[in-house]
Write a protein that binds this DNA or RNA. Structure first.
Length: 662
RNA sequence: GCCUGGGUAGCUCAGUCGGUAGAGCAACGCACUCGUAAUGCGUAGGUCAGGAGUUCGAUUCUCCUCCCAGGCUCCA
């Protein structure tokens, strides 16, 4: 019998009979591997387990516990979802069902324009479990385009995908294999159900089962808001019930940290309906946190050579005509007000044109450059009603915005300095784990010459590479006037957030005809760098709140210490302790003894106050305090007041970052 | 903007098959004076998101508007 030789992941080779399948290959290595196998890869390409080995191929087995293996489980579970929906709604149309992070979704169109309800999810889930119990095989078939169109005669979405493959457009989920655009593949798992799919799949539906359907949502066909809206079902699937339970637990944890929930519980901010969607108000405690963030940012900016400016919130339309914003983003701006006999005024969506006018207010010399103008500038953007979300997507927000005007020669240095500054400031707020993203020229809506974009992009790339952080490319993600670097941060539970952006802009100085006089006594055009570190104060606030799960570092806590007397007659001493701490700048309150001590401690704990001091007879006599520190299991009794005061003062002065609870 | 689901006391929620509502926590009052995550009793608190319609009667049914959630699209 002929033999094939394959290479294993560890570099060794193995010789087997021709016709040996990937699954048999796995079994030849060990029964446990065969049991855990869900698919295989030949030279990196994923294949089904019943695929015969190819001579000379690099073969590895995908197990359910690997990321690749989970993707296969999720994809196969999505197929079962589609089968269940077709079983329950005969005549339903099914569109696409890809794998996403932690799960999958599938898009449907139900007969008669019907919609899924939450109760339907339970019925669908039950039907999916039936299908899994039926132990249906996933059987792969290859077809020509015409055969494919015939199989999916009654499925317009599938036909559209097949036609796209036929036309050579291998788009999302189009199942063309290895460039053979004339073929499609299907998976048959019962006489009643065949799905168009590239694969691979698990051998049988019985291999699935650790899944949950999460929610129903609307989604546009092909992601195009001009096309019809389909019904999407989201689900999650894992290799074991344990992994599924852990995933659901992580979700619950993220919910617990939700800044909207914490904002209400800790009395930080609210969104009064009377004011309008996406327009937050900050309460005293939230206002204190904001002010602390802004104060520290001011300090750092001052030290870094920034100058502070202030600009108005509304302006004549002309300013945004000149800048180009009205051409590109009129939809995202609040409609204009008409004043002074027909003059149109807009609420500002951006600060940059104002800063350019400050630059232009006098004849500038190269000696003044780089000129760094900074402002906490409040801007208003008309976000579509469906997109406002807590503090992270609002209609009114304050940017920590600066524009740096510099010469072309200074540009590279300035970018480097700015990026280092950004990272240093974010680290002071307790974010540690960063990567960078380089966003390039957007298709279709960009101003400026390709050469300018090329130069700007390369300068940014060089700067980013010098930072010793991972750099990912965001093709076409730049602003219309220039490319950008954004700093992405991972938070305490591993989510990434886009934080700061640094954008290069050759356009705005040109549009506004900004100039400086160079050493050569000629007029030159400055380069403009836009940068925001927090992005918006509101959003950064939300991210920090979630990162710390509400337990902000002591220096940022609105209430740093609460002093509790054990009895009424300890209140005088409690006041004395509070005054002593206030004298070193701490924010302290005293909670009088008209409730049991346990109740007062509980209340203070729920507010996540960093230090609760309990004072009783012994403390009055000895000049000490009982320190109940946030996050510690038991309190420390009998700490000298002087010692505690010094410790607190140091912690605040150093802006110490606590261990972040996971 | 689109799809789905929501909006009942400050918060979390129950309830009303159409006859205008209830709990816990919070608030307030009184008592309790206590050593590390909930003291007891009492009081007050609601145009049932807003408006219109159907009806003898609407918090409940219908429509519109506002707001919220999860998605889609968008994000200078």
């Amino acid at each position: 019998m002929a033999a094939v030789t394959v290479r294993l992941p560890d570099g060794s080779t193995k010789e087997l009979d021709a016709g040996t399948t990937a699954l048999q290959f796995a079994a030849s290595i060990g029964p446990r591997l065969a049991k855990a196998a869900v698919a295989a890869t030949f030279d990196g390409a994923e294949v089904d387990l019943d695929t015969p080995l190819r001579d000379g191929a690099q073969v590895s087995i995908l197990t359910a516990e690997s990321e690749g293996g989970r993707s296969v489980l999720r994809h196969s579970t999505a197929h079962v979802l589609a089968q269940a929906v077709l079983r329950l709604w005969p005549g339903a149309h099914y569109a696409i069902g890809p794998v996403i992070e932690d799960g999958f979704y599938y898009d449907f169109e139900l007969p008669g324009g019907a919609h899924f309800s939450d109760e339907d999810l339970e019925r669908i889930e039950a039907t999916m479990r039936e299908i899994m119990a039926e132990d249906q095989p996933f059987v792969r078939h290859e077809h020509t385009i015409d055969e494919g169109l015939a199989i999916f005669e009654d499925q317009p979405f599938k036909r559209e995908i097949i036609e796209a493959v036929g036309a050579g457009h291998d788009e999302v989920d189009a199942p063309a294999e290895g460039g053979e655009a004339a073929q499609v593949s299907t998976y048959w798992n019962s006489p009643a159900f065949t799905d168009l799919c590239r694969g691979p799949h698990v051998p049988s539906t019985s291999r699935l089962g650790h899944f949950a359907l999460m929610r129903v949502a609307g989604a546009y066909w092909r992601g195009d808001e001009k096309r019809q809206q389909l019904q999407r079902i989201y689900g999650t699937a894992w290799e074991s019930d344990k992994a599924l339970a852990e995933h659901l637990h992580r979700r619950a944890e993220a919910e617990r940290r939700d800044h909207r929930k914490l904002g209400a519980e800790l009395d930080l901010f609210s969104f009064p309906e009377e004011i309008g969607s996406g327009l937050p108000v900050f309460h005293p405690k939230g206002g204190t946190i904001r002010r602390l963030m802004e104060d520290y940012s001011f300090q750092r900016h001052q030290a870094a050579g920034y100058q502070f400016v202030t600009t108005p919130h509304i302006t004549k339309a002309e300013l945004f005509e000149t800048s180009g914003h009205l051409d590109w983003f009129a939809d995202g701006m609040f409609p204009p007000m008409e004043l002074d006999g027909g003059q149109q005024y807009y609420l500002k969506p951006m600060n940059c044109p104002f800063h350019v006018l400050i630059f232009k207010s006098s004849q500038r010399s190269y000696r003044e450059l780089p000129m760094r103008l900074f402002e906490f500038g409040t801007v208003y953007r008309y976000e579509k009603s469906g997109v406002v979300h807590g503090l992270t997507r609002v209609r009114g927000m304050t940017q920590d915005d600066a524009h740096i005007f510099c010469t072309r020669e200074q540009m590279a240095d300035e970018l480097h300095t700015t990026l280092s500054f950004v990272l240093s400031l974010l680290r002071d707020f307790g974010l540690e784990d960063f990567f960078l993203e380089l966003s390039t020229r957007p298709e279709g809506k960009a101003v400026g010459t390709p050469e300018e974009w090329e130069e700007a992009t390369e300068t940014l790339r060089t700067t980013a590479l010098a930072m010793d952080l991972d750099l990912v490319l965001d093709e076409g993600g730049g602003a219309f006037y220039g490319p950008k670097i954004s700093v992405q941060a991972r938070d305490a539970i591993g989510r990434t957030h886009q934080m700061s952006t640094i954008q290069l802009d050759f356009q705005t100085p040109q549009r506004f005809e900004a100039e400086y006089i160079g050493a050569d006594n000629d007029r030159h055009r400055p380069i403009m760098i836009h940068r925001a570190l927090f992005g918006s104060v509101e959003r950064f606030f939300a991210i920090l709140l979630e990162h710390y799960a509400g337990a902000l570092p002591t220096w940022m806590s609105p209430e740093q210490v609460r002093v509790l007397g054990v009895r009424d007659d300890h209140e005088h001493y409690a006041d004395k302790v509070a005054d002593r701490l206030r004298a070193v700048g701490a924010r302290v309150t005293v909670d009088p003894a008209d409730e049991p001590l346990g109740a007062r401690i509980r209340r203070a704990k729920l507010l996540k106050i960093p230090y609760i001091l309990v004072v009783g007879d012994e403390d009055v006599a000895a000049g000490t305090v009982g320190v109940n520190r946030r996050g510690s299991a038991r309190p420390d009794r009998g700490i000298e007041l002087t010692e505690f005061t010094e410790m607190l003062e140091t912690e605040i002065a150093e802006r110490r970052i606590p261990e972040v609870a996971q």
